[in-house]
Amino acid sequence: MASKKQICAACGFTGLGSPQRSSSGGASHEICPSCGFEPGYTDDDQDISPEQWGTEWRASGSKWFSKSIPAPRKKSAPKAAVEKSVRPTKKVRARSVKKRNR
């Protein structure tokens, strides 16, 4: 079973380790390696909403933020696309049909 993806509310990065807010409203303080948004600091202390942060991040060129966590080669795809990609491709399915027909 695939674990639930945690999404950054500012940039949409899907590789976070935990939800940005718990059910109590407590912040995870996990700095998004993609855009640098830190729930509990950027919003609660610096008074910048995830939307504002994301807008500025995109306007500044959407640069990968983290110096220590490498950027994935390809941007994390939305959940639907990820699920689709693990299904067998048409080629694989065709090959298995051929085998059966032999």
């Binding site: 718990s22 109590s24 409203g25 407590g26 303080h29 830190e38 600091y41 609660d44 202390d45 610096q46």
Partner: peptide, 25 residues
């Protein structure tokens, strides 16, 4: 902020005067 095993999540000095009072728990 610390995890349940005592390891650190973050450590900083907030600017906001009401920061602590707004923390849940």
């Amino acid at each position: 902020a610390y995890n349940a095993n005592g390891t650190t999540k973050t450590f900083f000095r907030p600017n906001s005067d009401t920061y602590w009072s707004r923390q849940p728990g």
